[in-house]
């Protein structure tokens, strides 16, 4: 067996240290070692987006990221989208209010990617659709999800 690797993360704002096998996925570190089960595994192949987390602020599919490669990084999971005050992220609120949550399994990934999209401030609907298209959802048909993105901070169409 290969030697375990030490991984230090700023995980949802907190400094954490883990010792993991070199082949361990970031997804498994989060779900099993850190106990953060909000991040879901839908395919294990980077296709569905259910395991999306923010790595140094950028959305990544954590099933395709080796935990060992994240040493020194900042990782934000769905649990970490809550503000320090406990207030949900505007994308989370918008998903609930727009009816963008059905079975909920893709929802944490959608919320994380959505938060990244809102942070980037993308205004036009086709661009929002494109940016969220790495997150598969089988229940909603995406219409309420796109509405939620618009409500959460993307300016109305044409306003740029």
């Amino acid at each position: 067996m290969a030697e375990p690797v030490r991984v230090r993360l700023r995980l949802n704002g907190e400094l954490r240290e883990f010792s993991v096998p070199p082949g361990r996925r970031l997804l498994d570190l989060l779900r099993e070692d850190a106990g953060l089960t909000g991040t879901k595994e839908g395919c294990g192949a980077g296709e569905c987006g259910a395991c999306t987390v923010l790595l140094n602020g950028r959305p990544v599919t954590s099933c395709l990221v080796l935990a060992a490669s994240c040493d020194g990084c900042e990782v934000t999971t769905v649990e970490g989208l809550l503000a320090a005050t406990g207030e949900p992220h505007p994308v989370q609120r918008a998903l609930v209010e727009a009816g963008g949550v059905q079975c909920g399994f893709c929802t944490p990934g959608l919320a994380v990617t959505g938060a990244a999209i809102v942070a980037r401030g993308v205004g036009k609907a086709p661009e929002r659709s494109r940016l969220i298209s790495g997150n598969l959802c089988r229940c909603t048909g995406y219409l309420t999800v796109l509405e939620a993105l618009e409500r959460a901070g993307g300016a109305p169409d044409g306003a740029e």
């Binding site: 649990e79 909920g104 919320a111």
Partner: peptide, 10 residues
């Protein structure tokens, strides 16, 4: 929905 918040918060 009663299940929406739990799902969206993970």
């Amino acid at each position: 929905r009663p299940d929406a918040w739990g799902k969206v918060l993970g």
